[in-house]
């Protein structure tokens, strides 16, 4: 093979190889709780301590994909839009933050923050935490409080928030708003 032909073959191979080059998929990560409006944990006037003893997520929520409901029995786990942290941690932080922001009478803590003292126990079960195809952010499940003087029964919640614009960022905001609504319901029950 003469030098001319050799150069021609190399150039051809480079051109072919450049055709295989691909743009990597970009992934967006979202945080449920907002670092901007963190609640104050020092509440001198708080009369009661409430510990979030248990937060249980449905099996399909135990991953970092943001879930979207496409039909009554069909879900989409987004690969390009993901939670920046474990959803359990995210919901726990967001819920405790909302609860503490909304109430002056009670101080809500995670089990790690509670010492040996007695506290009312809060149990939350999240059955759904998703965005629906009909432009709604949906949060549903049950919660109950244990250790109150007047006792407490299981309360169900089914909170929906309409999506006013397209895209995941707005949907995440609405999910966060639904968490706020849940915190409001819990505070009313206490």
């Amino acid at each position: 093979m003469n030098p001319m032909n050799r150069t021609l073959v190399l150039v051809s191979l480079l051109v072919l190889l450049s055709g295989c080059a691909s743009q990597p998929e970009s992934i967006s990560y979202y945080l449920l709780h907002s670092p901007d409006n963190a609640a104050e944990l020092s509440k001198p006037q708080a009369q009661q301590k409430v510990v979030l003893r248990s937060l249980e997520l449905a099996e399909y929520l135990q991953n970092r994909h943001i879930v979207m409901q496409l039909a009554s029995n069909k879900l989409q786990f987004s690969n390009k839009h993901r939670w920046a942290e474990n959803l359990h941690t995210g919901v726990e932080k967001a819920l405790l933050n909302s609860l503490n922001r909304q109430s002056d009478k009670a101080l809500y803590l995670s089990p790690r923050q509670l010492g040996d003292e007695n506290a009312v126990e809060l149990f939350v079960e999240l059955k759904h935490f998703l965005i629906t195809n009909d432009s709604t952010a949906l949060v549903s499940g049950n919660f109950w409080l244990k250790g109150q003087k007047d006792g407490s029964s299981i309360q169900s919640f089914n909170i929906k928030r309409d999506l006013n614009s397209d895209g995941y960022p707005h949907a995440i905001d609405q999910l966060r708003s639904a968490i706020d609504k849940l915190a409001e319901k819990i505070n009313k029950t206490l």
């Binding site: 690969n79 309409d162 707005h170």
Partner: peptide, 25 residues
């Protein structure tokens, strides 16, 4: 998951994403 779905996607560009995005009212 991507490799599982399309083993050649490392070399060849993946097909257009079919993921549905949330739509607002």
């Amino acid at each position: 998951k991507q490799l599982n779905r399309a083993p050649n996607s490392l070399v060849f560009p993946p097909a257009e994403s079919t993921e549905v995005e949330p739509k607002g009212n």
